[in-house]
Measured scan of single mutants.
Amino acid sequence: MAAGGDHGSPDSYRSPLASRYASPEMCFVFSDRYKFRTWRQLWLWLAEAEQTLGLPITDEQIQEMKSNLENIDFKMAAEEEKRLRHDVMAHVHTFGHCCPKAAGIIHLGATSCYVGDNTDLIILRNALDLLLPKLARVISRLADFAKERASLPTLGFTHFQPAQLTTVGKRCCLWIQDLCMDLQNLKRVRDDLRFRGVKGTTGTQASFLQLFEGDDHKVEQLDKMVTEKAGFKRAFIITGQTYTRKVDIEVLSVLASLGASVHKICTDIRLLANLKEMEEPFEKQQIGSSAMPYKRNPMRSERCCSLARHLMTLVMDPLQTASVQWFERTLDDSANRRICLAEAFLTADTILNTLQNISEGLVVYPKVIERRIRQELPFMATENIIMAMVKAGGSRQDCHEKIRVLSQQAASVVKQEGGDNDLIERIQVDAYFSPIHSQLDHLLDPSSFTGRASQQVQRFLEEEVYPLLKPYESVMKVKAELCL
């Protein structure tokens, strides 16, 4: 049975990233139509530049190519590739079939990587351009969430054990800070992308030097003109047959890092959902379990974690691919890159769409948070109580021993009897502590235990987050809708 299948058929496997999760716009960027249309555009740009620099290419040939950029006979191309065992030459023939007058000058002087690699770089750039505003929107939604809850005390956790208090907004800023680093890295790697350009079979530009009869300047002009037509500021000066596969490492490393950030955020949300302090959106008709109707599973956060793990592992592909590119190139890269580049971007696209949807509907339960604080705060307040007693004339050592005994009794009630923490009640009825009984409410005010959390939130948002989001103001209103 021949390899390949009808990918629109229910009898043929289709990647869930495309069929179930990723956005239509990201799927289109990695589609065959987008790819092969870009090949034709690159052939047109090459012909236009070659004509401008004096090669015998007519206006009629150029116009014929322009008129057929979208006229792609995919069936013919597939048949040609089956016959020739070469995808680029299959599309040269297919393009030439609908451009008979231009057929002889299509791909003039070029090698397969002229269309293959340059198209990949265009796709990487455009895919990054799709991700950047999506990530900015996630940051914006979380920034709104953090600002609104900047002063809401909550129990902090280290080692997932109760620690000092923080605020809900401050905790959210930990998430935002990681995503801001990801946004900066995505922008950097996007701006650092260079075009492969017009380089020939081993990167020496020998074929173009021959076409222009040894004119170095025209060869350099050709490279520059096509690079500018493709919208790049610069091209690699040095290439082998391909652009260095280190570029793929750079791009997928940034995406993998984004995956790590999203995994951490969504894990926190899942843990908070278990504590009943916070939940992701839950639709009115949504079913959490087929057997347990009360369940409210954090399905979206779980999906993000599941896909983020996949995204983090994909960076190993370009690392290994770059390491086995012998001399000017081997074909070890080809099949692998067809999979890992598309999957990385479709996965990143999915987790950003999902995280935006989550961040637009996060639900906080202040009463649950308050109750958990009441359970733990008495123990945390013991040092403040000791200091207040010393100020009232008591002995630190005597007070410490009193607190120690009462704390152990209260802990026994919590752990052995399943009761509430009654340390404060014990202190309130103990005559030894009568000098500070009137101060206990103040000493137990949760806001006095959150330090500068709310001020940190305000400063972080104003100095770091809002300036970073400013270039994306025009796209901030787009909502994230999930079908599944």
Rank of each mutant, 00 (worst) to 15 (best):
T119L: 08
R125E: 00
R337G: 04
M292F: 05
E148F: 11
Y466L: 12
K276I: 04
P162C: 07
S257L: 06
V88I: 15
S19Q: 12
A136W: 05
F449Y: 14
D178T: 04
V429F: 15
E462T: 14
S31M: 01
S257M: 09
Y365Q: 08
G109C: 02
E462Y: 12
R20G: 00
E48Q: 09
R188E: 04
E79P: 06
G169K: 06
T167C: 04
Y294A: 03
L142S: 05
S9H: 15
L142M: 13
S407I: 03
T450N: 03
A143R: 02
S31H: 06
A392V: 13
H159K: 01
M225N: 08
T158C: 00
K187W: 07
A47H: 03
K75G: 11
C304Y: 02
E148A: 09
A322K: 06
T94I: 09
M387H: 06
A146T: 04
Q241L: 05
P16G: 15
I424L: 13
N297G: 05
L311Q: 08
T154F: 06
P378F: 03
L346A: 11
R296M: 10
A47Q: 01
I106Q: 05
K218T: 06
E280P: 00
C98T: 12
A150R: 15
M225R: 10
L142V: 10
R426P: 03
A146H: 00
R300G: 04
R190D: 08
Q456I: 08
C304W: 03
D430Y: 04
A260P: 04
A453G: 11
D73N: 09
I123F: 04
Q320W: 08
P56F: 07
D430E: 12
I351E: 01
E25G: 11
L183N: 04
G156L: 00
H437T: 13
Q356W: 10
S359L: 07
L469N: 08
D441R: 09
D420F: 02
L44P: 02
R149S: 09
R83Q: 11
Y34E: 04
D248P: 02
E60G: 11
L84E: 14
A110S: 14
C305V: 05
E462V: 14
Q409W: 07
I287E: 01
S112D: 03
R296C: 08
L255V: 12
K479C: 11
A348F: 04
D6S: 09
K246A: 05
I249W: 11
L193W: 00
I237C: 12
M299T: 08
P24R: 12
I176L: 13
L444P: 04
L131S: 11
I269M: 07
Q320F: 10
D87A: 01
D430T: 15
Y472H: 11
T38R: 03
I287G: 01
A256R: 04
